[in-house]
Amino acid sequence: MNTPALKDWPLWEVFVRSKQGLEHKHCGSLHAADAAQALHMARDVYTRRQEGVSIWVVPSASITASNPDDKGELFDPAADKIYRHPTFYEIPEEVGHM
């Protein structure tokens, strides 16, 4: 095997659960040779101050993202469906909290 450059280490996206009961949240990315190493590196790079109780690493190449050009098409149709929100409905005050 030739000496591989650092660029041969694939990119991983890192997700950290900050505390039990909360979701894993994307916090950044890093290069690592494999998943086990990516986890080790994520621990050192992203959780030096107890920022997390659990880490996910995902190969960046495995993520499918929506295209920014499709933003209007994808998300605008929700804008006029205000009846999906509780504030759309008027309830008499004497009913109290609902």
Binding site: M1, T3, D8, W9, D34
Partner: peptide, 11 residues
């Protein structure tokens, strides 16, 4: 370099 090579070879 050898560490990076070894990690890659291991993977």
């Amino acid at each position: 370099q050898w560490v990076r090579d070894a990690a890659l070879a291991h993977a």
